[in-house]
Design a protein around this nucleic acid. Sequence first.
DNA 1: CATAATTTTGGTACCGATACCAAAATGACA
DNA 2: TGTCATTTTGGTATCGGTACCAAAATTATG
Lengths: 360, 360
Amino acid sequence: MPDDRKKLTIYQIAELSGVSVSTISRVINNSPYVSARTKARVTDIINKHNFSPSSLARAMTSNHTKTLGVIVSDITNPYFSELYLEIQRYAVDLGYSIILCNTFYGGSNHGVSDAIPENTYFQMILDKQVDGVLILGGEIDRDHISDAYKEALNRMGKQIPVVILGESVPDCNCIFLNRNLSGGIPALIHHLLALGRRKIGFVGGEEGIRTTTARLTAYTQTLKNLGISFDSSLISLSNYYAPDGYRAMAKLLEQPETTPTAIICMNDAVAQGAIRAINDKGLSVPKDISVASCDQFPSGEYTSPRLTTLDQQNSYLGRMSIMTLINAINNDSEGISISHQPRLIIRESCGAHLGIQFQQ
Amino acid sequence: MPDDRKKLTIYQIAELSGVSVSTISRVINNSPYVSARTKARVTDIINKHNFSPSSLARAMTSNHTKTLGVIVSDITNPYFSELYLEIQRYAVDLGYSIILCNTFYGGSNHGVSDAIPENTYFQMILDKQVDGVLILGGEIDRDHISDAYKEALNRMGKQIPVVILGESVPDCNCIFLNRNLSGGIPALIHHLLALGRRKIGFVGGEEGIRTTTARLTAYTQTLKNLGISFDSSLISLSNYYAPDGYRAMAKLLEQPETTPTAIICMNDAVAQGAIRAINDKGLSVPKDISVASCDQFPSGEYTSPRLTTLDQQNSYLGRMSIMTLINAINNDSEGISISHQPRLIIRESCGAHLGIQFQQ
DNA sequence: CATAATTTTGGTACCGATACCAAAATGACA
DNA sequence: TGTCATTTTGGTATCGGTACCAAAATTATG
């Protein structure tokens, strides 16, 4: 039984096989320039000793590491973890490993306040010589990104392919995949109107974040277009998690005049928090207030009531992101354009299943 | 303005500074054997050109990559993603990067059935020459692990430190951190008994998985010790996610004789699914059935009703795991022993807040 | 000021692969 | 059997750092 306590090198295999390192290299790289006899013998010895070449040494000459960097703001957020799953699945199929970097930026923070500066990760990842970088959320999602951040992005983008699932930033050496952030909002509003609701609020999300801004704009615009009287006191922002939804909704419920008959939440976590706040006030969903959400989480199907929400098609977005990155790495400049239409999922939280007309 | 299109090497910096590569190496490694003058000049040039040494080349000589492998069965599961957050936080503080490998093993699968064999990852990670490996969930959580898996673990453990957050497997070159899997179950049962419940069911989890087996044993044992009549028809296993909780609970509700007055669920996701199943049958929680859970998720505080559950102290477990691994890497053989007592969180789903005595 | 002690610097082998060119072995054919 | 083409193999520079030893420069000492 061979000693596998330490990794063997190509030189030791050469020694054991009685051939040169060049020949071993040829065998492990499936070069045609080896005789069948030699190849068989060497393969045998390789298997017996469980040898596999050091990817480190390989990377030294080949200049690629078969490693990708994925920078994400909060992996505990179902939106990101679902994206990640799809990304990793595809990457592993193609032989890539993923260095995951959680920045905690704008995340739930879980009791800890200090986010890790994304620049720190940029450097870390660059030093590891990854073949490409994928950025999901974080500073890039702000309406206005800082010069320092942009400069860091630029520097990174000059060295390796950087794909960003987010809205384009001018003069940035990165590939942007623009999502359809506000798609589905009009459908959501029409759904609520059809049920009789007219006093529609907006709950959750954070000021200055792209997703929030885009949806908020779509929301106000749609209402305006329909000639619905609209009051900014029905908007209550905070953040993207259940506690935020609770807090934001509780604020709306403080005064009768700001209490809506329906709300649109940023995502299912926010919606769940909002529903709790409504229940704690002794009101009921959907009887007193209809609740809709913009971003479907797996849990939304099991809340009470089940959430009417938008499916943002995360798997599709994840797959497009990783495909774009790998194409960029392989210089297949064949641009990928993404087009996804968030799909309305009608369940119970707006009251459609009751088949009645609600009060306005 | 320096050209930063390509990463500079230590040789080019040497050239630019008019000194030898040895000196540059000394500067970037903070060696005391450089004159202050030289050090200042070189540092200047390094900063101006934004140079940072290739961690690849460094790893070639130093034999460590400052990279860790983390193998997890399903990162979308809040249990694991919270562990991961704590692990990464600690690792990054110490200058380590993390290669994350999601095996999909026994996970929610998200519509895809084929898990990625963990052995594949073992090889991938070993080739990348990570300094250590952390395993969270997956095959290791089975009551009986396969010989092939064990052999793969062994081979890996011989080469690099492997820490497993899970129950010990004999003759395995790995460091095991045994969790207190069944802690808190008696407390949960006492809580239910105090509220008047006696027909207590067990919902969710999967046959042959350590967590399930341990908790099931604690459950039956506690009931037996208390002299409570116990019926195995009150046990309905399935898996660890909301749809599984729904399915398992629905099964119990099919017949009046198997319908419990209280249930203990494997985690908050399962509990949420179970509550939906109960509601869909026209019954109410906690009035008709009390629901308790063994594993706290952030969402459990925002369900209707709020979940009475067990806090497994994931942050603590995550921190202990990564600390153990890094200690092992540094040969600080100083063993870390973990001791966590799952803590009972009393909220609404068992009905304690109502202050009444329920039917048995 | 010569010599020794100490500080500072330079040269080069090495880590484990690959790539490229040269050399050896084999086979084809006159 | 000799010559040439083709297949197969070997030798070694290289990637970008570190480590170790030798050499040069500086300072201390008699």
